[in-house]
Protein backbone atom coordinates (compact mmCIF):
# COMPACT_ATOMS: atom_id res chain seq x y z
CA UNK A 1 0.00 0.00 0.00
CA UNK A 2 1.16 3.51 -0.82
CA UNK A 3 2.59 5.27 2.17
CA UNK A 4 0.68 8.54 2.30
CA UNK A 5 2.31 11.40 4.15
CA UNK A 6 0.56 14.73 4.64
CA UNK A 7 2.23 17.83 3.29
CA UNK A 8 1.53 21.49 3.83
CA UNK A 9 0.32 24.00 1.25
CA UNK A 10 3.94 24.96 0.57
CA UNK A 11 4.80 21.33 -0.05
CA UNK A 12 6.83 20.62 3.09
CA UNK A 13 6.27 17.96 5.72
CA UNK A 14 6.43 20.73 8.32
CA UNK A 15 4.92 24.20 8.13
CA UNK A 16 7.41 26.80 6.93
CA UNK A 17 8.50 29.64 9.21
CA UNK A 18 11.07 32.37 8.79
CA UNK A 19 12.04 35.56 10.59
CA UNK A 20 12.94 38.89 9.02
CA UNK A 21 14.13 41.25 11.73
CA UNK A 22 11.13 42.07 13.88
CA UNK A 23 8.74 40.16 11.64
CA UNK A 24 8.18 36.41 11.81
CA UNK A 25 6.15 34.75 9.05
CA UNK A 26 4.74 31.26 9.60
CA UNK A 27 2.61 28.99 7.48
CA UNK A 28 -0.37 27.96 9.61
CA UNK A 29 -1.12 24.43 8.44
CA UNK A 30 -3.41 23.60 11.34
CA UNK A 31 -6.08 26.22 10.77
CA UNK A 32 -9.50 24.77 10.02
CA UNK A 33 -11.77 26.92 7.82
CA UNK A 34 -15.46 26.68 7.00
CA UNK A 35 -17.60 29.20 5.17
CA UNK A 36 -21.03 29.99 6.44
CA UNK A 37 -23.81 31.66 4.45
CA UNK A 38 -27.06 32.79 5.94
CA UNK A 39 -30.17 31.94 3.92
CA UNK A 40 -32.30 34.84 2.73
CA UNK A 41 -34.66 36.09 5.42
CA UNK A 42 -33.20 33.84 8.14
CA UNK A 43 -31.97 35.18 11.46
CA UNK A 44 -28.23 35.62 11.89
CA UNK A 45 -26.88 32.52 13.64
CA UNK A 46 -24.55 32.34 16.65
CA UNK A 47 -22.68 29.11 15.89
CA UNK A 48 -21.12 27.49 18.95
CA UNK A 49 -21.66 30.69 20.88
CA UNK A 50 -19.52 32.74 18.46
CA UNK A 51 -20.93 36.17 17.67
CA UNK A 52 -20.54 36.83 13.94
CA UNK A 53 -18.97 40.23 13.14
CA UNK A 54 -20.23 42.94 10.81
CA UNK A 55 -18.71 44.15 7.51
CA UNK A 56 -14.94 44.48 7.50
CA UNK A 57 -14.52 42.87 10.94
CA UNK A 58 -13.02 39.80 12.63
CA UNK A 59 -14.08 38.42 16.00
CA UNK A 60 -12.55 35.67 18.14
CA UNK A 61 -14.15 33.68 20.94
CA UNK A 62 -14.66 30.15 22.29
CA UNK A 63 -11.43 28.90 20.68
CA UNK A 64 -12.66 29.96 17.22
CA UNK A 65 -12.90 33.13 15.21
CA UNK A 66 -15.02 34.47 12.37
CA UNK A 67 -14.58 37.19 9.77
CA UNK A 68 -17.11 38.80 7.49
CA UNK A 69 -16.61 37.91 3.82
CA UNK A 70 -19.73 39.40 2.22
CA UNK A 71 -23.34 40.30 3.00
CA UNK A 72 -24.70 37.37 5.05
CA UNK A 73 -21.45 35.44 4.67
CA UNK A 74 -18.61 34.62 7.04
CA UNK A 75 -15.54 32.44 7.26
CA UNK A 76 -15.18 30.53 10.53
CA UNK A 77 -11.65 29.70 11.69
CA UNK A 78 -10.55 27.15 14.26
CA UNK A 79 -6.84 27.00 15.14
CA UNK A 80 -5.45 23.47 15.49
CA UNK A 81 -8.50 21.70 14.04
CA UNK A 82 -7.49 21.31 10.38
CA UNK A 83 -7.54 17.50 10.66
CA UNK A 84 -11.09 17.37 12.04
CA UNK A 85 -14.43 17.65 10.26
CA UNK A 86 -14.75 21.24 11.39
CA UNK A 87 -17.31 22.17 8.73
CA UNK A 88 -19.48 19.31 9.98
CA UNK A 89 -19.33 20.75 13.48
CA UNK A 90 -20.26 24.24 12.24
CA UNK A 91 -23.17 22.83 10.21
CA UNK A 92 -24.45 21.07 13.32
CA UNK A 93 -24.28 24.31 15.24
CA UNK A 94 -25.99 26.31 12.47
CA UNK A 95 -28.23 23.83 10.64
CA UNK A 96 -30.27 26.58 8.97
CA UNK A 97 -27.15 27.96 7.19
CA UNK A 98 -25.15 26.80 4.18
CA UNK A 99 -21.77 25.60 5.44
CA UNK A 100 -18.86 24.56 3.21
CA UNK A 101 -15.52 23.04 4.16
CA UNK A 102 -12.73 25.46 3.11
CA UNK A 103 -9.63 24.21 4.96
CA UNK A 104 -7.98 22.64 1.93
CA UNK A 105 -8.91 25.48 -0.42
CA UNK A 106 -6.76 28.04 1.36
CA UNK A 107 -3.36 28.63 2.83
CA UNK A 108 -2.91 30.77 5.94
CA UNK A 109 0.15 32.75 6.94
CA UNK A 110 0.51 34.21 10.41
CA UNK A 111 2.76 37.26 10.74
CA UNK A 112 3.93 38.35 14.18
CA UNK A 113 5.90 41.45 15.11
CA UNK A 114 8.29 41.56 18.05
CA UNK A 115 8.40 45.38 17.90
CA UNK A 116 4.78 46.37 18.23
CA UNK A 117 2.48 47.71 15.52
CA UNK A 118 4.98 49.66 13.43
CA UNK A 119 6.47 46.76 11.41
CA UNK A 120 2.96 45.38 10.78
CA UNK A 121 1.79 48.75 9.42
CA UNK A 122 4.88 49.04 7.20
CA UNK A 123 4.30 45.56 5.83
CA UNK A 124 0.62 46.31 5.17
CA UNK A 125 1.55 49.47 3.31
CA UNK A 126 3.96 47.52 1.12
CA UNK A 127 1.59 44.64 0.41
CA UNK A 128 -1.95 45.87 -0.09
CA UNK A 129 -3.93 48.89 -1.18
CA UNK A 130 -5.91 49.28 2.02
CA UNK A 131 -5.64 52.12 4.49
CA UNK A 132 -3.26 50.59 7.06
CA UNK A 133 -4.00 53.29 9.66
CA UNK A 134 -7.72 52.48 9.51
CA UNK A 135 -7.12 48.73 9.65
CA UNK A 136 -6.83 48.26 13.39
CA UNK A 137 -7.06 45.08 15.47
CA UNK A 138 -10.27 43.23 14.69
CA UNK A 139 -10.31 44.31 11.03
CA UNK A 140 -10.55 41.79 8.20
CA UNK A 141 -11.02 42.20 4.48
CA UNK A 142 -10.48 40.55 1.16
CA UNK A 143 -8.24 42.52 -1.20
CA UNK A 144 -5.66 42.08 -3.96
CA UNK A 145 -2.03 41.19 -3.23
CA UNK A 146 0.19 41.10 -6.34
CA UNK A 147 -2.93 40.33 -8.44
CA UNK A 148 -3.94 37.48 -6.09
CA UNK A 149 -7.11 37.58 -4.04
CA UNK A 150 -6.38 37.28 -0.29
CA UNK A 151 -8.04 37.80 3.06
CA UNK A 152 -6.08 40.02 5.40
CA UNK A 153 -6.88 39.90 9.13
CA UNK A 154 -5.44 42.16 11.81
CA UNK A 155 -5.59 39.74 14.73
CA UNK A 156 -3.91 42.15 17.15
CA UNK A 157 -1.76 45.28 17.12
CA UNK A 158 1.29 43.12 16.44
CA UNK A 159 -0.28 40.25 14.52
CA UNK A 160 -1.51 39.90 10.99
CA UNK A 161 -2.84 36.95 9.02
CA UNK A 162 -2.93 36.55 5.24
CA UNK A 163 -5.19 33.81 3.90
CA UNK A 164 -5.09 33.11 0.18
CA UNK A 165 -5.71 30.46 -2.43
CA UNK A 166 -3.86 27.25 -1.59
CA UNK A 167 -2.71 26.83 -5.21
CA UNK A 168 -1.02 30.24 -4.95
CA UNK A 169 0.75 29.41 -1.66
CA UNK A 170 4.23 29.68 -3.15
CA UNK A 171 3.50 33.02 -4.81
CA UNK A 172 1.97 34.47 -1.65
CA UNK A 173 4.95 33.30 0.41
CA UNK A 174 7.25 34.90 -2.16
CA UNK A 175 5.35 38.18 -1.92
CA UNK A 176 5.39 38.19 1.90
CA UNK A 177 9.02 37.12 2.07
CA UNK A 178 10.16 39.77 -0.43
CA UNK A 179 8.27 42.56 1.31
CA UNK A 180 9.48 41.54 4.78
CA UNK A 181 13.07 41.18 3.58
CA UNK A 182 12.97 44.63 2.00
CA UNK A 183 11.59 46.15 5.20
CA UNK A 184 14.45 44.54 7.06
CA UNK A 185 16.86 46.27 4.72
CA UNK A 186 15.27 49.70 5.15
Amino acid sequence: MTDLAPMTALGGSLARAQSFGALAIAENADLALASLAQRRGAAQPVPMGLALPGPGLWHAGNGMAAFWTGPGQWMIEAPGRAAEDFAGAVKQAAPECSVTEQTDAFVAFEIASSAGAAPILSLLAKLVNIDAAGFGPGSATRTGLEHMSVFVIRRAEDRLAVIGMRSAAGSIWHALESAAARLQGE
Binding site: P55, G56, P71, N129, I130, D131, G134, T141, T143, G144
Partner: peptide, 11 residues
Protein backbone atom coordinates in the same frame (compact mmCIF):
# COMPACT_ATOMS: atom_id res chain seq x y z
CA UNK B 1 -21.67 51.16 0.95
CA UNK B 2 -20.50 48.52 3.45
CA UNK B 3 -16.71 48.77 3.40
CA UNK B 4 -15.93 52.42 2.74
CA UNK B 5 -13.45 53.72 0.18
CA UNK B 6 -11.89 50.90 -1.82
CA UNK B 7 -9.37 50.96 -4.66
CA UNK B 8 -11.07 50.50 -8.05
CA UNK B 9 -8.41 47.89 -8.85
CA UNK B 10 -10.27 45.47 -6.55
CA UNK B 11 -13.27 45.64 -8.87
Amino acid sequence: PLLGLRDAQEF
